[in-house]
Each structure stands twice: as C-alpha cells, then as structure tokens.
C-alpha cells in the first residue's frame, strides 16, 4: 500500500491505453501524457507496460510505502529520493515498509512516472483506472491524490526479488531537452492552409505556452494566412477562417483555434469546430507530454512509411528487449 503524505501538484493514477471506446460520447482516453516513459517505467518494475501507475506533474508527492515492494521511477528526472537518498531512475528499486519517496524538480521535462511492482489497485471505470480530473472520471474517486490518500497495490506477477534491479538500457531511454522535434502527418485539413502556411508551421520554432495542460498544448508563434477553402465556405462553417462544421478530433490533432494552434492531448475534446491541418503521431505525442511552458517545439512532416517505422521502434522499445539486470 502507498500512503500520500503530500499529494504533489496533481498526482493521478493512469493506465495505458486508457479509457478506450467512449470517444463518440465525448469521453477521452486519458492515460499518461508521456506514454513512452510510463510504459518503460512499468517494464522496469516488472509490470505489464500498461498497468496502472502514477503520473507526477511538475511538483512531486511524498509517498510512504506501507509494505515491502519494488518501485521504479521514470520520465522526467525529478531527482527521486527514498529516505533522502537519491535513487536511480528507470530501475526497479527495493523499498521497505515505512520508506518515504520524495521528489525534487526536473531540469528537463515535467512529468515523472511511478510504477510499483504489481501496479496500483483501484476500481476501473468504463474499463480503465485512468483519471480525467476535469470531469471527475476514474482515478482515485474521480480525481487526483490528496494528502492522506492510501492506495492498494496488486500482487506482482514476478517475485519481488526478480523485479528488483531490472533496469532500462540507456539506448531505450527517451532523450529529454528544452527543445523537441515532433513528428506529424499532414491532414485532415492541410488543404485549408496555403503552402506558405505549411512551410511556416514546419520551419518555425514554436514556444510552448503556459496555458497548456492535459487537455491541450498551446503554442506561440506567427499568424497564418489560410487558403482558399478557409476563406470561401458556407456560413454554417463559422466566420473565422479556422472554423469548420463540427467534426471528430483525433488525440494529437493540431487544432487551429483562430491563430493559435493547440495540440489536443489525452484529456482533450472529442469534437469541435476548428480545422486540424496536422496530426501528431501517437508515438511522438509523449514529447509534448514532457514539454514545459517556455520549451521550444519544431514539427516535422513524415510520410506514412516513416510513421510506420517510428511505430515499430516505439513498440520495440517498450518490451523486455529494453531490460537489463
């Protein structure tokens, strides 16, 4: 069992791929913002990659272990400590009853993940333990951890001695920084922009706005012209060039709200009336999940084949191949 002495900024239970199958009712998948680090952290703890674990954002919690177990911490390096001693990241670390896990601040990235052997045990809501805090869906009674929250853990499928010392190899660990290159596919509405607009989007170094959270990431940069289609349409599309008749959004859509692109994240809206000229690859979205306000982002258009290759790399990383002892 885990006891929260301090909850941190917004520490929530997430699983992967989250709450799937309810998008047509407006219920988002939720799940980790950085699905790569989340799954690797689970693998380090000896769990299945998608098992329920904790997402730690910006300011970490203080957690007391109420049983002997193995814990792995991955994602942004928030300098995790057990009883005041730094512990290595991306590695199964044995802890004893009464030990306390604390965090510092990350120099790069902003979300850490905590996996305990066996995974966190909370009731599933619509098939998932993931938390959508803004709508009080799933998680710990619909929300994030509070001071005093106690979470049960499921029994580990591996003996604890086997979970301890499992380590993600350096080559499989995601690279962190203050500038990110994020792969996108063109579409669905790239034909609403001019060629100059598309070039501008992919050549400019965008700045992540402070108005960014688990629903969407706003980026700051230059204005767009918008193409013929955006300026010549039926009135029911709306008056702004970026308006279109409401349609279903993808997770990862680059949603042009007037002149502000917002990348829709895992708690984002399922539909709306703004065009999406680009869509971030599902295997690249983790980079935005780690980008901090003020970080810089460049977007790179890839082909379908390149997207497939990146997917294969991602899947290979999230596997036993990445583990050493």
């Amino acid at each position: 069992m885990l006891e929260f002495i301090k909850p941190g900024l917004e520490t929530s239970v997430q699983d992967f791929p989250g709450r799937i199958g309810f998008w047509s009712l407006g219920i988002p998948p939720s799940g980790p913002m950085d699905a790569l680090s989340f799954q690797l952290t689970n693998v380090a703890a000896g769990n299945a990659p998608g098992d329920p674990g904790l997402e730690v954002q910006f300011i970490g919690p203080e957690i007391r272990f109420q049983a002997d177990t193995v814990v792995a911490v991955g994602g942004a390096d928030m300098k995790p400590k057990v009883n005041g001693q730094l512990i290595p990241g991306w590695e199964g670390v044995p802890v004893s009853t009464g030990d306390v896990l604390t965090f510092g601040f990350a120099a790069q990235g902003c979300r850490s993940y905590v996996a305990v052997a066996g995974g966190v045990d909370i009731p599933r809501v619509m098939g998932s333990c993931s938390t959508f805090v803004k709508a009080n869906i799933g998680g710990i009674g619909g929300g994030a951890a509070k001071a005093g929250t106690v979470l049960k853990t499921s029994p580990s499928v591996r003996p604890l001695a086997e979970c301890s010392g499992r380590r993600i190899v350096d080559a499989a660990r995601p690279a962190f920084g203050a500038s990110w290159e994020v792969e996108v596919l063109l579409g669905p509405h790239d034909d609403w922009l001019t060629d100059a607009d598309i070039n501008q989007f992919t050549s400019f170094e965008w700045k992540v706005s402070s108005l960014s959270d688990r629903t969407g990431y706003r980026i700051e940069g230059p204005d767009f012209e918008f193409g013929h289609k955006a300026h010549n349409k039926l009135p029911e599309n709306g008056s702004d060039p970026s308006n279109i008749i409401d349609f279903g959004y993808s997770v990862g859509s680059v949603n042009f709200c007037g002149q502000t692109p917002i990348i829709l994240m895992v708690d984002g809206p399922s539909l709306g009336g703004f065009v999406n000229p680009f869509t971030v690859l599902s295997t690249s979205l983790w980079k935005l999940g780690q980008a901090k306000p003020g970080d810089h982002v460049r977007f790179k258009v890839v082909t379908e084949e390149e997207a497939r290759a990146l997917r294969a790399d991602f899947k290979a990383a999230v596997s036993e191949q990445s583990v050493t002892r």
Partner: peptide
Amino acid sequence: YLYSGDRYLLLEFGDEM
C-alpha cells in the same frame, strides 16, 4: 477519406450542415 494521424481516418460525406 482523410488522414487524421497514424491511428485515425476522417471520412467526409460533404461540407454543409
């Protein structure tokens, strides 16, 4: 039939309400 990322396809039947 439009690409909407690597996991979604957007099918447009028309462009009016």
